[in-house]
Every structure is written in structure tokens, then in C-alpha cells.
Simulated scan of single mutants.
Amino acid sequence: MICLDEMGPQACKSYPGQRLVAPAGPKSERARQEIDYDRRDVAGYVFGALQPVTGAAFTAPYLGRTTANWLDFLGRVEAWVNPAVERVYAVLDNLSTHTAVDVLLFNLAHPRWEFVFQPKYAAYLNLIEPWWKVLRSLALKGRRFDAWAEIEQAVEQATAYWNAHKHPFIWGRRRRHRTTKRFGVAALPNVALI
């Protein structure tokens, strides 16, 4: 199974991060951040593919979200996926570029691919959506970009870092935040103690 989607649009600007501000004294002013209104370069899109079982990810930046760019990305994902895999289930949302005639022709030309469209208004069912949050944190958070090429390089480095430290991507909250479950009164007795 592969989850496919795009993150975007991403513009060249400052992406706020978390910085500690030391207070200057009892009558100090609030910490301020300069507002970044101008766009220094055109916005673009980052297309991505995620294999949740292995955690492997593939990203490719494009300047637009067009059917031609999506087809090019599908071709690159086809080359990225192991040829020994017999069936590729691609989980997609219902964007018009994902259901275009050329994309359906791609599906006919590549018989091992099967597109699975998630229900409308249910983006949380696609595992790549929470992964985008991780990638934004790795690539963009707390940085300022003046050109689209800098964003491309940051996303490429973040994807390489993710793939170097990949692990199966599990849907839901992380285990360390869950409280341990304790058995109540209705628990089965421990047979070994009897």
C-alpha cells in the first residue's frame, strides 16, 4: 500500500518555530516577531508517496498542481517502488487531477496499480496526512526561505533524513502518550497463581 498526496502550496516565507525568549526584567515588553507579508518567489507543491508498512517516503517538488505534473510524479513513484511488488494499492483523495482521464490511462498502462479513493471529507483516513506534519516540522519549521529552490532542498534533506531513520508509520497517537491499562474487578484470574 502506498499513500499518495501533495503538500501545498508552499510559499517562500518565514515558517515560525518555537524559540525561548528570556525576559529582560519586570517592566519588559512582549516578545515580538516581525510579520512576513511579502512573497519572494512563486508558491509550489510537494508531491509525496509513503509506504506505511516500511516507513519509506518519496517526495518530489513541482511548481504547479497539474495533471501533467501528477502523471510525472506517478511515473517516478513507479520507478521508486520495488519491481518485485505484484500489487500497488495507491490511496488517494478525490482531487480532480487524481481522477483525470490521463491518470486513468496511466492506471490501464500499469496493471499492478490499483487506485483506492478515500471518502470525501475523510482526509484523516490517508496516512500521508499526519506524515506531512512530520515533514513540515523537519523541513520548514523555524526557517526562512527566500527562493523556491531553498524549499526544494530543505524538503529533499528532510526526506533523506526520514528515510535514514524510517520506521513503520502507525496511525494514531504515539504509544508513549497512552496511559497503561490496568485490569479492573472483572479481570480474568491468573491461572498460574492458583
Rank of each mutant, 00 (worst) to 15 (best):
Q33C: 09
V21R: 02
D38P: 06
P23A: 03
P16N: 12
A31Y: 05
Q18L: 13
A22Y: 01
F47Y: 15
T54F: 01
E34N: 05
R30C: 11
V42E: 15
A24T: 06
K27M: 08
F47K: 03
V46G: 10
G25M: 04
V53H: 09
S28L: 01
P26V: 02
P26H: 07
D38E: 10
Y37S: 06
D36V: 06
K27A: 11
I35M: 03
A24D: 06
G17N: 09
A43W: 13
V42R: 14
A43C: 12
K27I: 08
G25T: 06
G25C: 05
G44N: 02
V46Q: 15
P16R: 12
R19P: 06
A31N: 05
D38L: 14
R19K: 10
A31L: 04
G55I: 02
P23Y: 02
V53M: 08
D38C: 10
V53Q: 13
P52F: 07
P16H: 14
T54A: 06
A43S: 15
D41G: 14
P23R: 02
Q51P: 00
R40E: 12
R39V: 00
V21F: 09
R32E: 10
A31G: 13
V42C: 13
R32G: 04
A24Y: 04
E34V: 15
G44Y: 06
F47E: 00
F47Q: 03
V53W: 10
S28C: 14
L20V: 04
G25Y: 08
P26W: 01
T54H: 02
R30S: 07
P23K: 04
D36E: 12
G25S: 03
P26Q: 07
P23E: 04
G44P: 12
T54G: 00
A31W: 03
G48F: 12
D38Y: 11
L50V: 00
R30A: 10
E34T: 11
V46M: 14
G25V: 04
D41R: 05
R40D: 06
A49R: 02
V46I: 15
S28M: 03
A43Q: 12
S28N: 04
L20N: 03
R40H: 14
P16M: 01
G25Q: 10
E29I: 00
L20E: 05
Y37D: 01
E29F: 11
V42N: 13
R30H: 11
R39L: 04
Y37W: 07
P52R: 05
S28A: 10
Q18R: 11
D41S: 14
K27Y: 13
P16D: 08
R39E: 00
G17T: 07
Y37P: 15
A49W: 05
R19C: 15
A43V: 00
Q51S: 02
V46H: 13
G48K: 09
T54Y: 00
G48I: 01
V42A: 13
Y45R: 01
P52C: 09
R39S: 03
L50W: 07
G25W: 04
R32P: 01
E29K: 13
V21I: 09
D41C: 13
K27D: 15
L50F: 05
V21H: 07
R32Q: 11
R30V: 03
Y45F: 15
